[in-house]
Amino acid sequence: MGWSEVDRAFNDAVEQRVIPGATVVVRRGADVAFEGAFGFRSIEPNRSPAKIETVYDLSSLTKAIATTVALMILARDGKFRLDDRVTRFFPNFGVHGKTVITFRHLLAHCSGLAAWRPFYQRIVEIEKGGRVNFMASYGAKEFAYEEIHREKPEAPPATRTIYSDLGFILLGETIEKVASVALNRYCRDKIFRPLGLRATDYIDISHVRSRRLEPVPDMFAPTEICPLRKRLLVGEVDDENAFAMGGVAGHAGLFAPVREVDRIARELIACYAGRSDFVPQKIIREFWTRDATVSGSTWALGWDTPSPENSSSGHRFSPAAVGHLGFTGTSIWIEPDSEVAISMLTNRVHPRRDNQKIRDFRPKIHDLIMDAVNGG
């Protein structure tokens, strides 16, 4: 038993095409207990092995380790309060009974906003209607923001849990409004650079276009052959709405290698324990406490907690653990009190997104890892 069992499980998952490959870092306190790269970075158009340095599209991990951490820092600096109403910064948001929605509601996914809307389809139509290069432009991003401001909620605030990309797109806009800089710039200046992260960032499509920059394909784990863009995505955000908004959004768009995801986890654990003031202990403990607004919700603020049954975290994490998943096959789970963190990056959507085998794999691999961490 132990780490050889974990190795075997990853290799079996690659062989059985659960995932093309994976990178993983397991932390216990100040030490890395285990790390590894398994299988392939890409299987189409040709096979290339995954490396520990491979950069993955984090998808919705963006919500937890970029947007939410940025809001923790704004709270630290006295520029943002959880119980402020959204209309404090966006007066037009108050239509359709949304006046009472607070930032806490958005972070705990109980604002009543819809889970998702196909903004990218509307942006495609506008471009076809004559607005040249509208897709992935600043104007397209503003269009998405305005659409959310005008949204009619699907439930009254604080009555239902709806995991909402819209809420996090709005939180990304909030960071830009409060900080008076672009979201990617704020995250770079306040999170990534201070923590020494060199390969973690958004990929701003406007810069790629205007400067004719090309991501180095060998660095990235490709995602899917995208029906909208009709190409294999390599170093280009998988999420269609994030792409339509230019690659930089509050709900998706971040790219990183696994060791740098672990670096963020390490810092947040130190903040929780009071060893770092990167985020004050009081603030991170509030964000990492399960929100009681909606009975039965597993959400903390910007982070999830293990559900009583069928949690992707498996059966070994306590209810006090926090984590998040990404659509592309990424995940992070942290046990704050015992200072264990499991950062796992895969590109399970490569080459097609209909591969759902990771749902059974995640809880099993987390259990095996936790058993190895705990010595049995």
Rank of each mutant, 00 (worst) to 15 (best):
V279N: 03
V234L: 02
H207L: 14
E260A: 02
D201I: 09
P257E: 06
V234Q: 04
L195R: 03
T289Q: 10
D218E: 15
L268E: 00
M245Y: 03
K230V: 11
I203D: 01
D201L: 12
F243D: 01
I191G: 04
A270H: 06
G246E: 00
P217Y: 04
S180V: 11
F278S: 00
N241M: 10
R193S: 14
L197V: 07
V258H: 00
T223P: 07
V237T: 03
Y186S: 07
G246M: 01
L233I: 09
E260V: 02
A252M: 07
D218C: 00
A249W: 02
S276A: 08
A199E: 15
N184A: 14
I284G: 00
F192T: 00
L213Q: 05
F278T: 00
E236I: 01
R290G: 07
V234H: 02
E267A: 10
K230E: 14
R231Q: 14
L213S: 01
P222T: 09
L232P: 01
V234S: 01
A199I: 10
F220T: 01
R259W: 12
T293E: 09
R212P: 03
L213R: 05
D218Y: 06
E267Q: 13
K282D: 15
R231K: 14
I269F: 00
G247N: 02
I205N: 00
V248I: 14
R285W: 09
D204G: 01
A182E: 14
I283H: 08
S206Y: 08
R231M: 11
L254V: 12
